[in-house]
Simulated scan of single mutants.
Amino acid sequence: MPRMRVMLALLLFAGTVAAAPPADDVLARGARDGAVPAWTIAVATPPGWTRDCCTYARAIGVDAVLYRGEWTGKPQRVMVLNVWPRKLPTMAAELQADHKRYLQLDPAGKVSGFAVRHRSMICEATVYQGSDHIDDVLVFCDPGKDSGIRLSWSMTVDANDPQRRALLDDFMRVVVATRYAPARPAGARGG
């Protein structure tokens, strides 16, 4: 079963990747929103990928996207970052709600999950194997209660995509290297 081998490869990869060294690679920003403090999400872009927070990402209603080559408008091979105010009490509740939505849309789909080792956030991955032979990998992360947010990275990949392994490797590198930080107020200086 090729999909199971990919799942095992993701599991092994998620447990062995070291986080990238800190850098100022801010990809997305959020302004203070009520009790939720302003925030930044930073990550280095893998070679060959294009960062976008403000053109295509805004057009499809997400915080940021990373894609290879030209923008096609199709979801395949696009890493998508979503950040939202924490609403459900636990990340497990977020995952359960997402699994339920997925299975309502594709009752014949398969759902499997695994923990992702991240240096500073709790992260859980889900692999949705669609009955249409299009799979979605989704990783929810919780930067902590004080952040007031949760975030996710997702990517859609055709089950028979010849570049699947390389795409998923890049995806997991991005996930484990993602850094949340509270944003500094305007005019604040580092010290």
Rank of each mutant, 00 (worst) to 15 (best):
T50A: 06
P143L: 03
G30T: 08
A166I: 08
T156L: 06
P46K: 03
R86E: 00
R164Q: 15
M121V: 02
S147N: 03
Y67K: 02
L66T: 07
K110P: 00
A97K: 14
D33L: 11
L167Y: 14
A183Q: 09
D142M: 08
Y67N: 02
A93M: 00
I60C: 00
S120M: 10
W153R: 06
I122L: 15
A92L: 02
Y56V: 10
R29M: 08
Y128K: 00
S152L: 00
G113R: 00
T16N: 14
C54S: 07
N160I: 11
A20R: 10
V174K: 05
K110Y: 13
A14F: 03
I134W: 10
R117P: 13
A20I: 07
D158R: 06
R165E: 15
V176H: 13
L95A: 04
T40Y: 05
T50Y: 06
C123P: 09
A59S: 12
D169E: 14
P162H: 02
K74H: 14
R51N: 05
V17Q: 12
P46L: 00
D142W: 11
Y102M: 01
V111Q: 01
E70S: 15
R165N: 13
L12N: 10
T45Y: 03
A44I: 10
Q104P: 03
A64Q: 03
R32I: 11
I122P: 04
A59I: 07
D132R: 09
E124K: 14
V116M: 02
D106Q: 02
H99K: 15
P75F: 15
P2R: 11
D142T: 04
A59Y: 12
R164E: 15
V137R: 04
Q129C: 08
A97C: 01
G190W: 03
E94W: 08
T16F: 12
A186C: 06
R189C: 06
G48T: 09
F114W: 15
L8N: 15
L66R: 10
Y56P: 06
L103C: 04
R119A: 15
A92Q: 07
P89K: 00
A97H: 10
R150H: 13
A166D: 15
D135H: 03
Y56S: 07
K100N: 05
D33E: 14
G190V: 06
S154V: 01
D98H: 10
P75S: 03
P85D: 05
D25K: 06
S131L: 03
V111K: 04
A18D: 11
A23Y: 07
R68C: 03
V26C: 05
A35Y: 08
G130C: 00
R77F: 03
V36C: 08
C53F: 10
